[in-house]
Amino acid sequence: MEAAFLIEKILLVVVLFVITLTIAAYSTWAERKVAAWMQDRVGPNRAGIFGLLQPLADGGKMFFKEEIIPSGANKWLFIAGPSLALLTSFLGSAVIPFGQSIELFGKTVPLQVTDINVGILYIFGVVSLGVYGIMIGGWASNNKYSLMGAIRGASQNISYEIAMGLSIIALLLVTNTLSFKELAEQQHSWHWNIIYQPLGFLIFLVCAFAETNRVPFDLPECETELIGGYNTEYSAFKMGAYMFAEYINMFVSSAVMVTLYFGGYNYPFMDQVNALLGPTWGPLVGVSVMFLKIILFIFFFMWVRWTVPRFRYDQLMDLGWKVLIPLAIANIVITAIVITVVDKL
C-alpha cells in the first residue's frame, strides 16, 4: 500500500513536471506568435509547421551558447539565482487540483499532488519566495543595472503581496476554506467564485501580473531603462532558466487564478457529462477544461503584454499602495457585511 501510494505520487509529479515544462516551452512560442498576430505579422514559422519546433530550436541555442560568468560576480550566488528562480516557480503547482479523482486500473487517483489544508497560504509563501531568485541573481551579478532590477523586483513583490493577500482574505470569507481541493469542489458546475468576488478577482489579477513581473509591471527587467535588469549579465542557459521561470510562474499563477475564481476543473452540466462518460473519461473532460482555462489565462497575460505600456515606478507604487490596498480592504469590509446580512436573513 505504502509503495503503491509512493509510486502513484511520483508518477503524478513526473507527469505534472513534464506538462509544466511543455506548457512553459510552448508559451515562449505562443508569446511570439501572439505578439506577431497583434502586430499584423506571422511570427515564427520556419522551424517545423507553424514554427512548432521553435521551442526546441531556442532550447538548443540556449544550451550551446557560451556561458559567461563576469569576473566581478559572486560565482556561487550567480549560479544560485537562476536555479532558485526555477525551483520556486515549480513548487507552486504541487497543491493545485487539476481534476476530480479519476478511476484508473480499478484505483481512485486524486489529480492533485498533495492537498495541504493551508494550500492557499502555501502558494502565497512560494510566491513570496520567488523574489529571492531575482534578488540574489541581481546582486551577485555585480552590475548596477542588475542591482537596480533586483531592488525593484523586491520592493514591487512586497508591495503587491499585501494587496494580493487582502484580496484572498475576502475570498476566504466566502469559501471558509484554505484547501484547494475543497475550494474546487465548492465551485461545482457553474458556482464559480468570480460571481461572488468580481472586485477581488480584479485586484488578484493585477497583483498576479505584478508578482510574475509581466508587462505592465516588468520594471525589474525593463529593457529600455535597465537593459534587462536582473538578467543583464546572464547568458546561455542561466538566462534561459530565468526566462523559463517567468513562463512557469505564468502557468502556475494562471492555474491558481482558475482554481480560485474560475471554478478550476468545473464546468456547467458536468454531472450529466460525468454520468454519461463514467468515472475514467468524465474527470478527463474536467482536466481538459481546466487546461483550456489555463491556456486562456496565459493568452490573456500575453494579450495584455502586447497592449499595455509599462508603468512608471512611482505610478506602480501609487497603484499598489494607494489604490489596490484600500480597494482590497473595502472589498473585505463589504464582503463581511454582506455575509453577515445574508446569514441573519
Binding site: 493551508v118 502565497f124 509563501g125 510566491v127 513570496s128 519566495l129 523574489v131 529571492y132 534578488m135 503581496e161
Partner: peptide, 26 residues
C-alpha cells in the same frame, strides 16, 4: 503546527528577510 509554519514561511522568509536583503544590497 502547519499554520504557524506557513506564516513563519511567508512573514519571515518571504517578507522580513527580503527587506533585510534589500537594505544590505542598497
Amino acid at each position: 503546527a502547519q499554520f504557524l509554519a506557513i506564516v513563519n514561511f511567508i512573514v519571515y522568509m518571504g517578507a522580513i528577510m527580503v527587506l533585510f536583503l534589500f537594505v544590505l544590497m542598497l
